[in-house]
Structure formats: C-alpha cells, structure tokens
Design a binder for these strands. Structure first.
Lengths: 190, 190, 190, 190
DNA sequence: CATGAATGAGCTTTCATTCAT
DNA sequence: TATGAATGAAAGCTCATTCAT
C-alpha cells in the first residue's frame, strides 16, 4: 500500500471516528483498528492525536471554503449567491464535517481554536465583504454588515446542525428555497 | 453551611469552571478548589462530573426556556415577539450559558445528548407552533415551518456564539434591531 | 500512614529499585509494587520518575558530602584526614549509593548531569583546597593539585565500585589502611 | 560495498552514537542515519542493539588490554611500567572509549555486565600479578595487592573520567607525571 | 458530614525489531 | 542483499472516583 493511500486511509478512518465518538472519546486504538493497522503505524503518519485532528479540521475548513466562489458583479447576482448557498449547504451537510467542525473543534487546544477562529474570521469576512458590495449596489438592506453576516451564517448553519443532532436527513434543496425566501422577504408578512 | 447553600455554591463554581475551561479540561480539582471544599464533599452532592454537568445543563436550559413566554394572540403580536427575542438574546448572551450550552454540551454522553435533543426539540417545537399560528393569522410567510424555526434559531444563536468565540462583547439591542429588520424585510432589497 | 512516612517509604523503595535494576530498567510499577501502593499514589508524592531519581541523587550526594568535615589546621592533621577518609568510604560503600551515584546517575537528563557535575565539582574543589593548604603547610607533595585531587578521588572510589561490581563485600578498615599507606609512601619502593 | 567494510562502518557509527548520546538515548535510527543505510541492513549485521553494543564493548576492552604489555623482569622495570601507564592513559582518554566503557557499559544487561566483570577481572588480575612480582623483587610496597590494584586502577581512571564529564581536555603527559610521582612518593610528605 | 489521600483503569506515545518487496 | 514501512509490547502519566478517618 503506497504511503499516500495509507495516509489517506488513516485520515479517513480518523475522520469517521472523530465524527462518531467525538475528539475526546476517540482513542488512537479506535482509529487504528478501523484502518486495520498497528498503533505504531499511525505515528508514522501523524505526530499525535491532536495532529490528525488538526489536519482533518484544516481539510474540512478548506473544503467548505473552496465551495464558496467570489461573486462576479458583472453578471447576474442572485443566481450566483444561491449557487454558493447551495454548494455550501451541501458541503457542511456531510455528517462528519458537521459534527467535527461545528461540535468538536472548539476547545481541543489553543492551536485548533486559533485555526477555527481564523476559519470563521475568513468566512465571515467574505460574507461581510459581499454584503457591503451588495449594499453599495443597493441590493442589500442597510445596517450593520458584521451582525448581518453572523445572522446569515447562523441561518445556514443551524438547520444543518439540528439535522445532525436529530440524526435526520436534510433536504438541501428545500433548505435553499427556504433561506432564499427568508433573505428576500423576511419571515414576517408586513 | 447548610446543604442547599453548599450545593448551590458547588453548582455555581462548576458552571464557572465549565464555562472557563470547557467540560473536558475542567477537573473536579478545579471545581472544588473554586468552592473551597474537599473533593469528597463534591461527591456527597453530585454523583459524578457528568452529573453536575447535566444539572447545570438542565438549569441553563430551563432559564433559557423560561424567558420565552407564550404569545397572547388577543393582544398586539409584534411587540410580544420582540420582547421574547430580546429576553432570549440576553439570556443566551451570558458568557457561561453560551459556552456550556452551545459549545460543550454535545457529545459528553448519551444522557446529555438526549437532554439537549429534548431541549432543542422543545424550543423548536414552540417556535414552530408560533410560526404556524402566525401563518394562520397571515402574519408569517408561508413555507416549511420546521425549517423556518431552525433558521430563526440560527439567526439568533450564531451572532451570540461568534461573539463568545471572539471574546467580544455583543450589543444585544443592536442585534435585536438587526434581527427585527431581517425578519420583517429579509436581507435583500427586492 | 502519615505523608512524610509514606513519602519516605516510596523514596526508600525507589532507591532500592534503582540500585537493583538501574534507572532505565526500573519502572514505576516496580517501585509502587515494592511499597505496596497504587501507581497514582506515587504521583502524589513525586512529579515523575526523573523527579524521584533526582531527589534520591540529591540526598545521596548530600549524605556523602556531609561526612567530609573541614580540617582544623590548628589540630593534628593526619588523624582528621583519615577520619574523613574512613567516613567517606563507609558512606559510598552502601550498595545503593554506589550503584546509583557512580553507575546510573550520568546520562539520565541534563538536570541530573548538571547536579552530578556540581557534586563532583564541589567534592573535587574541597579536596583541591585541602591539598593546597597542605602544600602551604609543606605536608603535601608539590605539583598540580587539580590532578592530584582527581587521582585521590579515584583511589577511593574505584575499590568501592569494583567491590560493587563483583558483588563482593569490602573491608573498609583495610582499604583505609591501604590508602593511608599509598598516600604516605606511594606504591613503589624507591 | 563489501560486507566487512559495511559491518565496520556500522560498528564505527554505533560507537560514535553511543559515545555521544549514551546507550539508552541512542536509537537504531541514529546509528543507521549516521552510516546511511536502512534499518533493516543494521539487523543483517547485528542481532540487536545490545549486540552491537557488546561488540563495541569487546573491541574497546581488547584495545585497552592490548596496550598493556607484560613487563620483562630481565630489563629495567620503571620505564616499562611508565610506558604501559602512558599507553593506557592515552587509550582510555579517547572520548568514546571513556564514555562507553566507564559510564554506559554497566547495567545494560547480564551479558554485558559479565563481559565487563571479566574485563575488569582480567585487567585487575594483570595488575595484581605485576604488583606481586614487584613485591617479590622488593620494588613494590607490601600489603594487599588486590586492593592496591584497585586503587591503582582508580588513580588512572578517575582523572580521565572527570575530564570526560567536564568536557575538558586532558594533558596525558602531565597526568603520567603526576601519577608517576604519586606512585613513587605518595601524596604526603613525611 | 467533611476530608483528602489513595486508587487503578485507561490513555497517548516510543522504539527495537521484523519482513514483504 | 538492501530496504524502510509496519509492528505491538511496554512505558509513563492522569484524573474521576472511593473510603477510612
């Protein structure tokens, strides 16, 4: 088995184990028995339990970030926004991403916390910038973009997180539609 | 010191410790040294570390639930909604509530997970019911109330969680205003 | 059992175990099973395996140093020298002192190495000073006192170390006599 | 590369590594990376870490033993003694010999301990025999030759060991002179 | 009832050794 | 024959929990 494949296999197993048991209940024993290698093998590929976790975190964050593409203001904007939304929801709906990124990541250690802060900072920064541009174009409501960005993030994240907590499946299309409507008309009828 | 007071003191200390260090990094040693009692005393009042945590969780959930009062459909509705919103945000903005309830609670054990599921189930159930009533009264947009409820929860929760992650303060009034606007007009200008 | 006694018991057991098996082959398991306490108990009294070892080393060095008393130049010198010699040999003849101090101490870690260097530095410094005084008084041969001190140390140490290696007993009196003769007349007959 | 040369190269590297880091801190990884061969190759030439160490020990002991040549009683004795002394000191002054033979060798395992005991037994036996001969010739002081031999060994060994501990250089000539003087006249002036 | 020393299961990590390529 | 990835026993250490005082 070539090193890259093995490394990937361990990473995959670790992802599954962390998603299933959470960081603290997951033991190296769980991971290696899942891959079918010896304990020592794990340490040939990763420095420590924290190390694998960090790498999984990083790759998950990168995956999530990568699906959001900058909006081309020359083109039609709403379709681009909703395409992003759609991809984003599908990205974070993956069972393991959701559990690891949204429930387990915080509080492991300073390094992971920093990475997570950076991730949220980057994500929120992008959303804020987009909203600001939107305000300039007159297509986004006025007000504090900082808070708006956070609300928007929650709007997207929470249904996914709740579905994960419930162990229920999530209809991404329906969610996109619902969020779409919310963004355009709000929740209340005036 | 009478038992109830002592029990309360331990509970309070544990809350602070869990909020400060998180469930896993918090040790019984931290809690007892905070209260100034011996380790053994802790176990006279609580069965285990998980036990205190559960009780704290329960009381936090009760606090949060209690601030949301049913809406009197006979009276004017929007002010009641926003009063609820305001109280809710203030309730979950408390540093310890936010950290414990939203970051630490999930994944401790099955029992806590169940409690949390029940909490979210109850909270979302209430919101859903209110939205359904609203739809009947024609003051809430049509569509899936289940998803709407989850979005609404996220809308409220996320800015608070992010402020906690950033270690930043949150202007509750401003947040209420922002959410108010979002609920009424959405994020986009049509 | 009071803490001081328990601490002393663990220290004693550790001393015996280190002397018997050497630092590296000695496990915490050996030590605690020797005292009859649980693993955790060990760590209530000592921070780590290195920590006990360091403390044992320190106490052994202190024991050895303490038996050598400064020479009163006002009084008769040779008896004082030989009394020191006698006490010193008896001190380092103790089986565990010899093994731990002379065979195991070097190379555990930087801290222990420094402590040992300091110990030898102090011991040799004292001997050098005494020799220098002796040269001033005309009772010690001329020449490099630094080297003389080291030779003298070896003269004393080696027979003890060899006895320990052989597992043989050592007649301290006879050794003192022999060293006495060597110091006064050398090994060769002119 | 022919097997003998490779074997020699590994032996040399292992010597250097053991001298530099000590037996326990030295890893097979250190040795093989020093030679530039793979781990597996090491095990084609040596059975185990202990095995290389033993062989190094044996060769060091042989080197040291070889420099001491029997004294020809027909010829002039003192020059022969001092020539032996001189060669011996130079032999054990080699940094790696000193560290490996005098600090690391004891306590690795039973086999090494036996080898070391045999080495010291042989060395001391020779010295004793020489001293006995010397006593017969009337050029060595009377008394227990067993102890005398051990003292003599320490006299030689200790300055070398101390220099190694200090990381200082040793002037072999000066040491020979000093020991010479000590053997002839003792340390004290009568 | 309060105490806090004692407990020991269980964790992560290391590294000499093996063996398929 | 050389390789180096894989192995897994064994080590040190932690900490929630217990229980004699």
């Amino acid at each position: 088995m070539d090193p890259d494949a093995r490394r990937a296999a361990i990473l995959l197993a670790a992802r599954a184990v962390f998603a299933r048991k959470g960081y603290h209940k997951a033991g190296i024993a769980d991971i290696v028995s899942e891959v079918g290698v010896a304990r020592g093998t794990f340490y040939r590929y990763f420095e420590s339990k924290r190390d694998v976790f960090q790498q999984i975190l990083q790759s998950m964050m990168a995956e999530v970030v990568s699906v959001v593409v900058p909006i081309d203001v020359a083109g039609e904007i709403p379709p681009q926004v909703f395409a992003n939304l759609d991809r984003l929801i599908r990205a974070i709906t993956a069972e393991d991403v959701c559990r690891v990124l949204f429930s387990e990541a915080l509080g492991i250690d300073e390094e992971a916390d920093d990475a997570l802060r950076a991730f949220y900072g980057q994500a929120l920064g992008r959303i804020e910038a987009a909203l600001q541009t939107g305000q300039g174009l007159g297509i986004v409501q006025g007000g504090d973009v900082r808070l708006k960005a956070r609300c928007l993030l929650g709007l997207i994240k929470e249904p996914v997180v709740q579905a994960s907590i419930d162990g229920a499946d999530l209809d991404a299309d329906q969610l996109v539609t619902e969020i779409h409507q919310l963004l355009q008309h709000g929740l209340l009828r005036v």
